[in-house]
C-alpha cells in the first residue's frame, strides 16, 4: 500500500489539492453557519491555542519596542543619567500599562454596571483575520465554553463591536460591524429613523453605511446611530457609531449615509459577549 502511495504520490497529492478547497466550499455552502467538522474543529482549536500562546508571549513586545526607542534617544555622553532615565522610563512604561489596563477595566466594570439587564461574558481579543477583505477578530472566552452561540452581539464600553460568527470551544470568531457580510437593524438616535447597517469592508478604511433609510428622514453628520433591538438577540440602544457623511443619492425612496464606528477596532483588547437579557 505504502509502495503504491510512493509510486503515485504526485497524482494523489494533486487530487487532494483539488478536492480540499471544493470540499470546504461545498461544506460551507450547505450550512447556515460555516461548519468545520470534527477534524477541522480540532485543527482550528490547535491554531487558536497556538495563537493564544503566541499572543501571551508577544504581549510585551510593543512595550520593549517603546523602551528601545526611548533608549536610543538618550545622550550617550551621560551614562549615569542615561541609566537613570532608562530605569525611570521603564518604570513609567510599566505604570502607564497598568494605568491603561486599569482604565480599560474601569470602563468594562462601568459598562457592566450601567447595563444591569444584559448578561455579559468577558472575552479577550487574540487575533484578527489575515486579508483586507473581511473584518473578523478571534476571541478567547474566559468562562463561556458552551454558552456562546453564533449571532450573539459583542460589545466594548464604547459601543457595539459585532456579532459572533463561528464558535469553536472556548474560542470564537466575531464578524465586526464593518464587515461586508454584517447587517444590523439600527436607529438614528435623534429622530428614531430606521435602517440597516452594513459594513464597507471593501473600502480602504473601517466604516459602514446605513441602507434603507427613508429619504424623508432628515439626518446629518454627527447624528448618533444605535441598535434598534428589533432583530435577533441584539439589545436596543447600543451605540454603533456616528454619521460622518450623507451621500447625495438619486431621487428615490431611500438615502444612504456613511457611519464611523464608535469602537476603535485597532485598540480592542477586552470585550463582552451579550449572552442574554433579563426578561427575554
Amino acid at each position: 500500500m505504502w509502495d503504491l502511495f510512493l509510486r503515485y504520490r504526485s497524482p494523489f497529492l494533486v487530487l487532494l489539492l483539488i478536492i480540499q478547497p471544493l470540499v470546504l466550499i461545498l461544506g460551507g455552502r450547505s450550512a447556515e453557519y460555516p461548519q468545520t467538522g470534527v477534524f477541522g474543529d480540532a485543527v482550528l482549536r490547535a491554531i487558536s491555542d497556538t495563537q493564544n500562546l503566541a499572543y501571551q508571549g508577544l504581549g510585551g513586545v510593543s512595550q520593549l519596542w517603546d523602551r528601545y526607542l526611548r533608549l536610543v534617544r538618550v545622550n550617550e555622553e551621560n551614562e549615569r543619567l542615561r541609566r537613570e532615565i532608562a530605569r525611570l522610563q521603564e518604570e513609567r512604561v510599566r505604570l502607564l500599562g497598568v494605568m491603561q489596563e486599569n482604565a480599560r477595566l474601569r470602563a468594562l466594570v462601568g459598562f457592566q454596571v450601567s447595563s444591569p439587564s444584559l448578561q455579559l461574558l468577558a472575552a479577550h481579543v487574540i487575533a484578527k483575520d489575515i486579508t483586507p477583505y473581511f473584518r473578523v477578530i478571534r476571541l478567547r472566552l474566559d468562562l463561556g465554553e458552551g454558552i456562546v452561540r453564533p449571532d450573539m452581539p459583542v460589545v466594548a464600553p464604547s459601543g457595539l463591536v459585532g456579532q459572533v460568527s463561528t464558535v469553536m470551544g472556548d474560542y470564537c470568531d466575531v464578524r465586526l460591524t464593518v464587515d461586508p457580510a454584517s447587517a444590523i437593524d439600527v436607529l438614528i438616535q435623534r429622530n428614531r429613523a430606521r435602517g440597516v447597517l452594513r459594513g464597507n469592508g471593501h473600502e480602504n478604511d473601517y466604516t459602514a453605511r446605513i441602507a434603507y433609510l427613508l429619504q424623508r428622514d432628515q439626518v446629518e453628520p454627527g447624528d448618533v446611530v444605535v441598535t434598534s433591538g428589533m432583530a435577533g438577540e441584539m439589545p436596543q440602544e447600543l451605540v454603533v457609531g456616528t454619521i460622518i457623511e450623507v451621500l447625495q443619492a438619486e431621487p428615490g425612496l431611500f438615502q444612504e449615509v456613511v457611519v464611523r464606528p464608535a469602537v476603535d477596532f485597532s485598540r480592542l483588547e477586552e470585550v463582552f459577549v451579550i449572552t442574554g437579557q433579563e426578561g427575554s
Binding site: S10, L22, I25, P34, I47, A127, T131, F134, V136
Partner: peptide, 30 residues
C-alpha cells in the same frame, strides 16, 4: 510532491485564519 504536501497544509490553515467563507482562499492558494 513536497511542495504539494506543504501547500495542502498551508492552504488549509490559512483558510481557517483568513476570516472569509471557508474554502475560497485555499482554492486561490492551490
Amino acid at each position: 510532491a513536497v511542495g504539494a504536501a506543504c501547500t495542502l497544509i498551508f492552504a488549509a490553515v490559512a483558510d481557517l485564519c483568513w476570516g472569509g467563507p471557508r474554502g475560497y482562499y485555499a482554492f486561490g492558494l492551490t
